[in-house]
Structures are given as C-alpha cells and as structure tokens.
Nucleic acid binder design. Structure first.
Lengths: 197, 197
DNA sequence: AAACACCGGATGATCGATCATTGGGTGTTA
DNA sequence: TAACACCCAATGATCGATCATCCGGTGTTT
C-alpha cells in the first residue's frame, strides 16, 4: 500500500521551501516540477493546492503559483491566530499533565543532543496536546492547518529567530493545568504571544 | 475570462449538499459526477478536495469520498471555533461602526422581504466585517475556511434550526464597538456561543 | 460451515496529450 | 515615440486513457 504520490511531492516541495531552494517570489511551474520529480502534472497540482492552503505559495487562475515571500508580519499573524486558537482550546478542556510532561521531557532530550528539528517538533507536540485535549476536532484540524512546524523552521532560517522552545518556559503552563488554574488559557495565550517576532 | 471549471463544480456539489440532494453517508464517485456535469474527472477531484477542507465530505486514499453526516456536535464545534476566532479578531482591532450598521440594515431588509438566504448572508457579512477589521489576513482566511454560510444553511435544513440572525441581537455589539467597550470581544464570543445548538 | 485464496468489476490515482489563456515580442499607425 | 493590434511560445486547465487498489463474489480446502 503506497502512500499517495501527492504526499511525496508535497513533502519535496515543502522541503525545498523550508531550506530555501525555492526563492521567495520564484515562479513554480507545474510541468517543471513534474519533470524534475519524474511524475505527471496532476499530482503536482494537487500538492500545490495544499501548499497554498498553508499560505506558503500564492496562485491565481491561469497564472500559476509562486513562492510567497515570508515577512515578519506573516509570522505575527500566525502567532496571533495560534494564540487565539490555543486559548480557546484551553478553555474547552485541560490536557493530561502526564502527557505534557512527556513532551517537555523529549524537548529537553532534543535540546541535550542539540537537535534543532527535534526541539521544534517536541515544542509543537506540547502545544498540539493542549489543542487535542479540547475535544474539538475542528479546532485541532484548524490548528494543524496552520502548518506551525513549517513556519517555525522558516522563521528560524529567514529571520534567524531564536529557538525559543525550552522546557523552562513550559513549566508554568504545566503547573497551571495541574492545579486547574482558571487563568491557564490566558497564560497560554501570553506564552505564545511572547514568542511572536 | 472564464472562471475555473472547478469553481462551478464546487458550487454544484455544494448546492447538492446544502439542499440534501446528496444524502449523508452517500458515496461520491468522481466519474459519476464528472459525467453528470459533462466534465472530466480532474476538476471534480479538485473540487472535492475543497469540500473536504470544509469537512463536508470525508475521504481516504484509494477509497474515495462520501458525504459526511452532519451532527449537532459538528455544529457545536464550528460555533466554538468561530467564537474563539472572532473574539481574537475583536481584540486585535475594532471595525468601523458604519460598516456594521450597513450590514444590520441589509439584514433587516432581507428579513422584511422574507429572504432566508439574504438574512443568512447579511448576518455572515456582519461578522466577517469584524474579522476583516482585525487586520490579520490569516485570521480572515481561517475564518473564511470554516464555510459558515454552508454550515448555517445545513443547520437550518437538517436540524430545523431557528434563523437567529436578527438585527436586534447585533445592536449591543455595535454599541460596544462604538463606545470602545473593552468587553466587546467577550460580548461577541457570548453572542456567538448563544447561537450554538 | 468456516477460513482462505483467488478472480474481476468498480473506481481512485496517475499519466500523456490537448485546449485555452497569458504575457512578451514585433510590427504598424498616428 | 507612444499607443495599439497581432502573433506565438510558455504554461495553466482540462481531457481521455491507463494503471493500481479495493471489495465483493466464488470456489476450494480443512
């Protein structure tokens, strides 16, 4: 059972965007990509649509797609929306503290080995746990749709952003959830906004 | 300059879903739709992807798409997420009161002529104005991505939901924005949640 | 009869080819 | 020369056909 080709293509394109192989503003020609990857135009189109929903590319009818230049303003928007979503999530339901602690543990482990992407994905997993615990599947899918992992990598590469995922930052949140602190949602929001550029 | 075929197809499918021509759980066969509409399979696939992102259909690899049964729980989730998004929007920036009043006016006009879809879309436009005024384009696009107009029509048809869009409900919100009331975001959230089933 | 292996049609996924639009280049006119 | 009309290559949009997978039916084994 092979996974759909379009998923591979999407990953390839994502990788190119994250690493900067595709320059901002550059045109993405469907047939060119297809030829490079040895596939046909159709799955490339579908992959591009998914990237468009992540706002990594922009396209208009009959004119094709191009790499969207990433600005600080974009990042600010992402953090604002993310903060609102997670605050909402925290109001709807509290996560299991054990799960959060597991994520902070793997965050520390990744930091210890100096794994950048390990830290990023552990940090993301911590927050995803909170959103999932809301019990609202739509909220989770909207949150997933933000593509936070990609944006985080982009912000690090493009803006030399500090890697701000560290276990200490998350401890107050864990404590707030443990004690059922009614201010947890607000804390979470501020925590996220403090990361915004 | 014709608009893309896929847009027409999406509209046709949407209409079928809203009116119930497609029954919940029913399989949506790409070639069948294509043949019915006199087009080929490709644009139908693309249209289906868009419907999937609206969570109106569900699909899995190699197994195709089927109409997603709409439950009250789905609607609750939509309202919760929507409330969170609009609260966030209201915190980020206040809309122009004149614009809001224009929307309530057209809401009243639609109510006067008994136009159901007119009332729905005026009600949606009122809220969209608020989200747009946040200045956060991502927030607006996420909000748009909820497909509220479709969900509203569905809730009315499937659950015989009351049409709760009326100008009087919106007046306190307009007043709060006019006076710069810091509680406006919270009012807005409660306003939306009060509509949830 | 239950469990299993094996067709074969239906259909999603992908392909290669064609249609249609865009944008740039070239010539023409005022 | 500026404005305009036209032509054509590049390429997005769409098509018809093929490949690959799923699923139900059928026969076989134990």
């Amino acid at each position: 059972m092979r996974s759909p080709l379009r998923d591979d293509i999407r990953r390839q394109l994502l990788d190119g965007l994250i690493t900067g192989r595709w320059a901002p503003g550059e045109r993405i020609v469907e047939r060119r990509v297809a030829a490079d990857l040895g596939v046909s135009q159709a799955p490339v189109r579908e992959a591009l649509r998914e990237l468009e929903s992540l706002r990594l590319i922009e396209s208009s009818p009959n004119k094709g797609a191009r790499v969207r230049p990433v600005t600080r303003a974009d990042l600010r928007e992402v953090y604002q929306v993310r903060a609102g979503l997670e605050e909402t999530a925290a109001r709807l339901g509290a996560p299991a503290v054990e799960a959060l602690e597991a994520h902070t543990a793997s965050l520390e482990a990744a930091a210890a080995t100096g794994s950048l992407s390990g830290q990023v994905s552990a940090g993301i997993a911590f927050h995803r746990e909170i959103v999932a615990a809301s019990g609202n599947a739509l909220l989770l899918s909207v949150w997933d749709g933000l593509g936070l992992e990609v944006w985080t990598h982009l912000s690090i590469r493009v803006f030399r952003a500090e890697l701000h995922e560290n276990a200490a930052d998350h401890q107050p949140l864990v404590d707030a959830f443990r004690t059922g602190d009614p201010q947890a949602p607000g804390l979470l929001r501020d925590h996220i906004l403090s990361y915004a550029p």
